[in-house]
């Protein structure tokens, strides 16, 4: 049973949270409501409460969305990005996971030094090494290819560190038992280590997704072909086009925000865990 005082302070907390979240939600609600309107309507509603209310459900309700999805390649860009994210999640979990596992459980010379180097890499901003990545990918002749885009994105010192922190507490005797059960080290990693560490795998996957979904700089450097572009670049192209209406712009922004909101609402636990264990939200 909570004491009376505690209950009162709980209610105050809830009230404060509601006010705060409304404060942050207003722009989102505004965006959503206006994304269904024509520009004339938006201007008309601008200074009244109607700015936060979606228009009536008439036949033209989804016009902005339909024109975005049919007249532009935005859908294609979103699917591209989802595909890149999926590939990078799989490769990222495997590569960074294996590296984290080695740093946590396998004895090799200078292991602690390696760890230190990787931790130092965490404080180097991505932007400073992106030129090197670009030159590298260019030298390999992989500009404007999916491989060229994906390759430098796989390794992520944050994720290596995150994996290492979780794997280090896995009991060694399970590995020994698995050895006696004829489980090879590689099989052990995939059938034991990863399933036993579901929550860090989820955390890394979520971070990777958000990273890929929100990244603008790297895809804009690598890709020139419009077939391969990502959602963020599409967003930029569409919103900077003079012919795009205000309502269409808001519709694009809404579309690009939806996956992020879904991810946050389903995986908030993993995101918080990731923030707590590394002390930072990456990306």
């Amino acid at each position: 049973m909570l004491t009376k005082r505690k209950r009162i302070s709980n209610w105050i907390l809830v009230a404060v949270l509601i006010v705060l979240s409304l404060f942050f939600l207003f722009p989102v609600i505004w965006m959503l409501a206006n994304s269904f309107k024509t520009d004339a309507q938006i201007t008309a509603d601008m200074n009244s409460a109607a700015a936060f209310i979606p228009p009536a459900l008439t036949g033209s309700f989804l016009d902005n969305y339909i024109s975005i999805l049919t007249n532009t390649s935005f859908l294609r860009y979103m699917l591209n990005t989802l595909f890149y994210a999926a590939v990078l999640i799989v490769l990222g979990v495997i590569v960074n996971g294996l590296a984290g596992y080695a740093l946590a459980k396998i004895k090799f010379p200078f292991r602690e030094r390696w760890l230190l180097i990787i931790m130092l890499l965490m404080i180097v901003p991505m932007e400073t090494i992106i030129t090197i990545h670009f030159l590298f990918v260019a030298k390999l002749g992989l500009l404007n290819t999916v491989i060229g885009y994906i390759l430098p994105m796989i390794v992520n010192p944050f994720n290596i560190f995150l994996f290492r922190q979780v794997f280090i507490s896995l009991p060694d005797d399970i590995y020994e038992a698995a050895q006696l059960d004829y489980c090879s080290p590689v099989k052990y990693f995939f059938t034991m280590v990863l399933p036993m560490s579901k929550s860090v795998v989820a955390t890394v996957s979520v971070f990777t997704f958000l990273n890929v979904w929100n990244d603008y700089l790297w895809p804009s450097l690598v890709f020139t072909s419009s077939d391969l572009l990502t959602a963020q670049i599409g967003l930029n192209a569409i919103t900077s086009n003079e012919n795009t209406t205000m309502g269409q712009t808001l519709a694009v922004i809404t579309l690009i925000t939806i996956p992020v909101i879904i991810i946050y609402s389903f995986f908030s636990k993993q995101i918080v865990e990731g923030v707590v264990s590394t002390g930072s939200k990456e990306g």
Partner: peptide, 24 residues
């Protein structure tokens, strides 16, 4: 070997724990 802390595979059922070696 039987380990002090059992070392069971936590994500597998009793049956899977027992059959894992034979499967491999």
């Amino acid at each position: 070997m039987v380990f002090q802390n059992y070392a069971l595979y936590p994500h597998m059922t009793v049956e899977k724990n027992i059959s894992y070696g034979l499967k491999n």
